[in-house]
Amino acid sequence: MAGTAVPRTRTRRRGLDPALKDEYRAWLRQMLLIRRFEEKAGEAYSLGKIGGFCHLYIGQEAVAVGSLAALRPDDYITCSYREHGHALARGISSRAVMAELFGKAAGCSGGKGGSMHLFDASLGFLGGHGIVGAHIPLSTGMAFAIKYRNTDQVAVCYFGEAAVNNGAFHEALNMAALWKLPAIYICENNRYGMGTALERASAIYDISERACSYDMANEVVDGQDVLVMHAAMERAVERARNDKHPTLLEVRTYRFMGHSMSDPIHGHYRTREEVEDQRKRDPIAVWSQRLIEEGFLDEAGVKALDQEVVEEVNDAYQFAEEAPDPEPSELYTDVYANP
């Protein structure tokens, strides 16, 4: 299967399947949950309840929700450090994620990982990783393990577009293609690596073309449309699960917030106008509008969903705030399995 053999999918309008009504609704709820959660996290950060780095996912919700919806519970997922949304979409409770951001023992990483290192082994959610690009080979390794055991799982790796200029990306994708591993690499192209625009960092602007170097299947995906994202992911999963062939998805999206909580929304690297323009394609608005248009939901239904997730997030916040810190003795645990 050559790199050019897969048709490039743009934001083509697809019809909705009434049988999937509940699923569509669930996607919207997840996206809303991520949005409200991140807004609350930003608030908690500014109140000093969350420390360290905190990278918000606002604007990119459809990517995690649409892609993860195409996976099975036994698949493996690795992410970069902007992974709150993926963790929630994968099913880690908002309480466990918020508690982790608060550094509490009840957090999904026991308060030891924090915002950048969310884990839930039971969900195959194998971490947020803090070194740009370094987790891409890990995902290749998981795909290798799948092939080694001859199961039909897939290994999915999320990273930003800045990581593709990194050696780890090339090494990992080359081996995945070389060994025909069930791997899916999802490049969330939000156009800025921190404050550096893609065009200022990469000689090739179409990241999907990088896959040609490895004769790997690739697609460019509209990341603001959850349905499109989901469809592209289904194709990639099919290739991986059945054909043992890896895929590089370049998902075009946009982060509405700064790189991290310490970064302004616009900064010097992008204009207010650009951000405002991109906000017109807010993935939540796009999807809720679609559901309303097609009669799957009404305005009140959307509001009710929103109210529901606000309550959930408030509960998570309260839970995290009241949860105890890890025991001091936890300092020295989990360094070794057998010290």
């Binding site: 390794g141 393990a145 780890a168």
Partner: peptide, 19 residues
């Protein structure tokens, strides 16, 4: 391939899922 970073990472990833 001659990719120390890459195959070391592959090893870590494989080990993370039990190999």
């Amino acid at each position: 391939p001659i990719t120390e970073l890459g195959f070391a990472g592959v090893g870590v990833g494989a080990a993370m899922v039990g190999l």
